[in-house]
Design a protein around this nucleic acid. Structure first.
Length: 194
DNA sequence: CGGACGATTCTCT
DNA sequence: GAGAATCGTCCGG
């Protein structure tokens, strides 16, 4: 194992804190055709109970959101249109909050990412939540596993010099929640989605 | 069982 | 900036 996997204790932080602490960490996926990895450069926090933009708003509990009620560090994958999105489950059991991973800076397995994405433009491989899952072959089969004990895991990376924050993206119909500044990214990083 | 609805992306204009 | 692609989940009948 070449990377230092973060232990499950790492995830025992408030959602907004964890969303920022995940920036700079290394997301790694081991699959049959190779290993891909990238630094997390952009995240969004979804605080279910009080957040109209979250699937788990007001403790809404369905088959899909069930995993958010589990312990922190679980993997929540979700199919949106034709794409799969990946989240880190946060907070204690029965507290349905999560952090969406929106963008990565490619580190290894770049040729494989290019092949899966059908482009040679490195900046276009993982600069969006649906793009990075395709580049790394993250699918619904990862749903319910954990980021500290599966073929999809998060390892120690670097500490960003400066973090920016702002409103989240793609949630225009979420009332007052659309203005919450719960999107975080590494300032100046060229792989941020927008 | 049918219909509405996206935490998106790509392709034009 | 607008529109289509396209499909699992969820809810109402």
């Amino acid at each position: 194992m070449a990377y230092s996997i973060l232990p499950k204790e790492f995830y025992e932080l408030p959602t907004l804190d964890l969303a920022q602490k995940l920036l700079g960490c290394l997301l790694v996926k081991e699959s049959a055709d190779g290993v891909t990895s990238g630094y997390i450069v952009e995240t969004e926090a979804y605080k279910g109970p009080i957040d109209r933009a979250a699937h788990s708003f007001n403790y809404r509990r369905t088959k899909r959101t069930e995993i958010m009620y589990h312990s922190p560090g679980h993997i929540y994958t979700y199919v949106m249109h034709t794409h799969c999105l990946v989240n880190v489950v946060c907070e204690e059991v029965d507290q349905p909050e999560a952090v969406l991973i929106r963008a990565l800076e490619p580190v290894s397995g770049i040729d494989l990412m290019k092949q899966r994405r059908g482009t040679d433009n490195i900046k276009n491989l993982t600069n969006g939540p649906g793009k990075l899952t395709k580049a790394m072959n993250i699918t619904m089969t990862d749903y319910g596993n954990t980021f500290y004990a599966s073929s999809l895991y998060i390892a120690k990376g670097f500490s960003p010099e400066h973090i920016s924050s702002g409103p989240r993206i793609g949630i225009q119909n979420s009332g007052e929640a659309k203005d919450y500044p719960w999107r975080f990214w590494i300032s100046g990083n060229p792989y941020v989605s927008r």
